[in-house]
Design a protein around this nucleic acid. Structure first.
Lengths: 243, 243
DNA sequence: AATGGTTTAAGGTCATACCAAAATACCAGC
DNA sequence: GCTGGTATTTTGGTATGACCTTAAACCATT
């Protein structure tokens, strides 16, 4: 008896069916960001299910980052505009719970951030360069005041990624520097000389990009990232995999 | 009156509080993959809330890919082992709804898959090479039978990424080739000569890696990816950004 | 005009009941 | 003794209906 005759009876949850329907509407753009779904009670009669079921569906959609739920009059479920921050955050959440070592994530980061240097050298606009230079100045000042944090460094790397003018890449790098993933790395405080060196490398990189000097830019970024990587490794005392 | 006296009362959702608590247990590894949470009714009395609330919390955790819910006796919420497939899927869901163009994603993919070639050349084991060769043979056969699909190609790239022996990178590449993201790209069917050429490039790449020839491996992969990229671009008729 | 209460629409929570599915235990029949 | 069906129990899934909280809008008083 060919068992292909019987399609796996998917007695999936009613709430899941509702989720799928709404998700489909989103995909087909029949629901656009900012739109408001009917109220829970309206959805009940619309789908012919109880409010509990509708609410479960909304919880799932909310957890997936597809809708945002506001209470009060004029409240309801609103389709969210999917921004990079959210995507990166969701990614980071899963990453932080997956069995990845800090060394692995750092290496992945190294590949990406080094791989995009050619794009940056090629595409960075004057605006990009100005913004980066301003950032470097601010960081120098923060350093003087002893207020230089990893977060500032992360901001720099994120802004650099934006120079590719590729939203996917920007998103990727942002997720590497996301808040949740940052907590993975213990090195929140930066020793003064460390920060000073890192800050100088940032500035050198910007100038190399400004000069459209791919080799110099790559070399600078490479040295910068390798130094960070080795720090992560020694912190975790498992620096025996990489050659 | 100094208004700092009053701290903003945060009356977040009860279900969210429960989610946070369980998430914390996961993060602290007091709950490990495979563990089973108490039944819904037990959680009710434990948290002192109603079953509806507990269920909403479970829906959120389930949607986040942290637990899996099974029905029946001995059912309940089980902590999932976070695997790459799941991570990639969640990522792809958001990506497919974010305003990323296929061209952008393709470029990001190009950066990553090209950037990891040095790692692969350095780290690929004999097992890796054997597996890749077997894969190439199978693909050739599939090609003869006219059964060569994009999925097979995706499998190859995923297996290649695994040669880095870095779970983060493997996960990243997998997410690029995930099922949902695949649906973004229309090119599901592969024209015979296209598949033949791609398949040959796969094989050339493997041999270059086997010979530990970084330049050849990079060049081969680059050509292969560039060809794919240009196809995506022409399909979307917006190939005017890249130089 | 500004303040403060009231209405109203919406989500948030609770309690109870019943249904469905899955694992187990048990029991009849061969 | 083994097989196959049936009952029970455990657990999630759904439905109702009620009540509370929030936030916006509306209105009345000063």
């Amino acid at each position: 008896m060919p068992e292909e005759l019987f399609k796996t009876v998917s007695s999936s949850r009613v709430s899941q069916v509702i989720v799928d329907q709404i998700r489909l509407l989103l995909k087909e753009e029949r629901l656009k960001p900012g739109d408001r779904l009917p109220s829970e009670r309206e959805l009940c009669v619309h789908f012919g299910v109880s409010r509990v079921t509708v609410r479960e569906a909304l919880r799932i959609l909310e957890a997936s980052g597809l809708v945002e739920i506001r209470v009060g009059a004029r409240g309801g479920a609103f389709v969210t505009t999917p921004d990079a921050r959210q995507v990166g955050e969701g990614l980071a959440t899963l990453l932080s719970l997956s069995p990845l070592t800090a060394a692995e994530v750092t290496e992945a980061r190294l590949v990406v951030e080094l791989g995009i240097v050619p794009l940056i050298v090629e595409r960075a606009t004057q605006e990009d360069l100005d913004a980066l230079r301003v950032m470097c100045d601010e960081h120098t000042e923060a350093l003087e005041r002893g207020e230089y944090t990893m977060e500032l460094s992360a901001d720099f790397h994120t802004r650099v990624a934006a120079c590719t003018h590729n939203a996917a890449i920007k998103m990727l790098v942002e997720s590497f520097h996301g808040p949740l993933l940052m907590s993975l790395r213990q090195a929140q405080t930066v020793e003064p000389q460390m920060g000073r060196l890192g800050s100088k490398e940032h500035r050198d990189f910007v100038e190399a990009v400004a000069a459209r000097d791919l080799d110099a830019a790559t070399a600078t970024m490479n040295a910068h990232l390798q130094r960070t990587a080795s720090r992560v490794k020694e912190e975790h005392a498992e620096g025996d995999t990489a050659g």
